[in-house]
Design a protein around this nucleic acid. Structure first.
Length: 487
RNA sequence: CGGGGCAUGGCGCAGUCCGGUAGCGCGCACGGUUUGGGUCCGUGAGGUCCCCGGUUCGAAUCCGGGUGCCCCGACCA
């Protein structure tokens, strides 16, 4: 049967994840209307449906930033080239991927302007003006912005030449204050991923090789996608006094001594949209967590002939209002040309958590059908009285949010294994799983693992247990590293 | 930067070897039929065949040059 379906409807089905995950991803991003190809190489157009997911992410983060005392501001897109060069490691890290403006107003510029790849430098320069005294600290700033990094191999949301993100930048009086801020923001990212995106993440510290250019320490949240590859989904950096020294960010302490500030930065990008797609999606398409879904409920009206239309639409409108009043984001599919069956499949592909079907039988029986995206077919359908629709929908949305998180957690835990020897490490990576292993290796050792297995150290997880001999060098190890193939 | 491939309505492609009225599927518009798991029929709109030059009575097709894009090997939220 399925074979015939494929022949008569070749355009309708999405490539199965199991068949070709990467193709599945590319198809679904476009077919679910999240993004569209752009005329500029390496960039994408984020379409309204995809942008609404990003708006959900922004809302969830912005609320948490404000609650912890941060304020939003906006800094220029263009950065004087000399700024980028002020911090040695920073230049080195970013110069290969900079876009530089050399001409403007019909003339060559005196000094080229870099299109920001990140804003530590301009913001550092501003901070040095703004901060005079310990009374000005901590300074807690966030900016929502676009940045440009001239990547060679790009994929929608995961890696594009231009992307949207937030970048937080803070200055503190002491190392410990900066470290506490760095951790607090990492915790906020993890909480957001867990509670809003329904993605369980692993918090940890990056290795020296994977650290942000110019940071003392970089922390990360790592998420597992459905193809078991790791996705770095947010990072938080303790920048020490590196940028403070490069940009002369100093304060007068209570002791009347000039001291350099301790700064941090932390960012989360539109890559998170890709994480939501790849952490929850199935063969039929997206599965959006209710907290972030642009439409939490889609109503599909069903009627056989025009005579039934009026009564059905009247019920649809009444139920829509009830749901809206309950604070639920509802969309009514009014398209005339498509059959209900087509619409069911279409909205399933686009990941809407709940579908409400209203037909003549429902009008007659004062009921309606609710179908959950996370349980396809009959198993996910429930027949509810119209009077209790809002409560039923709210309950189901909460249940879907929980079940997506639980699915993802279970999937992740099933695919992380301990490796006690280097051969075990290789075997684990070979299967596609993540490997947890004791580590005391050098940068060179780390690079060699990458060469030999394709996996990198994603992080040294905070909650990792006791030490044992290093999996690569046999030396006593104090840390446990998490190895995985990554995006 | 090194290797391979492609360029033809909005999208996916055929046609190119062997020159001769530019085609198919999807989508789109209109009319009808249908609608509780991817309806069906009919009509229609839509193309500088990547660009420049050459050969020829005649070029999507042959020849020369150029451009753009995609895929595979070194960096990154």
């Amino acid at each position: 049967m399925p074979k015939r379906k494929e022949q008569t409807m070749p355009e309708q089905a999405v490539t199965a994840q199991s068949e070709d995950f990467s193709r599945w991803y590319n198809e679904i991003v476009y077919r679910a209307d999240l993004a569209a190809p752009s005329p500029v190489r390496g960039c994408v157009i984020i379409k309204p449906y995809g942008y609404e997911v990003w708006e959900g992410i922004k809302a969830g983060l912005d609320r948490r930033f404000k609650a912890t005392g941060h304020q939003n501001a906006y800094f220029p897109l263009f950065i004087p080239e000399s700024y980028i060069k002020r911090e040695a490691e920073h230049v080195e890290g970013f110069s290969p991927e900079l876009a530089v403006v050399t001409h403007a107003g019909g003339k060559e510029l005196e000094e080229p302007l870099v299109v920001r790849p990140t804003s530590e430098t301009v913001i550092g320069e501003a901070f040095s003006d703004w901060i005079q005294s310990y009374r000005d600290l901590p300074l807690l700033i966030n900016q929502w912005a676009n940045v440009v990094r001239w990547e060679l191999r790009t994929r929608p949301f995961l890696r594009t030449a231009e992307f949207l993100w937030q970048e937080g930048h803070t200055a503190h009086a002491t190392h410990d204050d900066a470290e506490a801020e760095t951790m607090q923001m990492l915790d906020i990212y993890a909480e957001f991923a867990h509670d809003d995106a329904a993605i369980p993440v692993i918090k940890g510290e990056k290795s020296r090789l994977e650290r942000f250019a110019g940071a003392l320490r970089t922390y990360t949240i790592e998420a597992m996608m459905r193809d078991k590859r790791a996705l770095q989904s947010g990072t938080s950096h303790n920048l020490g006094q590196n940028f403070a020294k490069a940009f002369d960010i100093r304060y007068l302490a209570e002791s009347n001594q000039q001291e350099y500030c301790w700064t941090t930065s932390w960012g989360l990008s539109t890559r998170m949209v890709g994480a939501v797609v790849m952490a929850h999606g199935d063969d039929k398409g997206l599965r959006l967590p209710p907290v972030l879904a642009p439409h939490q409920v889609v109503i599909v009206p069903i009627y056989r002939r025009d005579a039934q239309r009026g009564a059905v639409m009247e019920t649809v409108e009444r139920l829509r209002l009830t749901l809206v009043e309950a604070g639920i984001r509802v969309h009514v599919d009014l398209r005339e040309g498509q059959s209900p069956g087509f619409k069911f499949n279409d909205w399933e592909m686009r990941g809407v958590p709940l579908r409400l079907e209203v037909g003549p039988k429902d009008v007659e029986k004062d009921s309606a059908v609710l179908a959950r995206r996370d349980r396809l077919g009959r198993a996910g359908k429930s027949f509810v009285p119209q009077a209790g629709i809002a409560a039923a929908a709210e309950e189901l949305l909460a249940a879907i949010q929980r079940s997506l998180l639980e699915d993802a957690r279970q999937f992740r835990d099933e695919h992380i294994q301990d490796a006690r020897s280097y051969s075990e490490l290789r075997e684990v990576i070979e299967t596609g799983d993540w490997a947890r292993a004791a580590w005391a290796g050098s940068d060179a050792d780390e690079l060699q693992v990458k060469e030999q297995t394709g996996a990198t150290i994603r992080c040294f997880p905070f909650d990792a247990g006791a030490s044992s001999p290093c999996v690569k060098t046999g030396k006593p190890a104090e840390r446990v590293a998490l190895f995985a193939k990554a995006y």
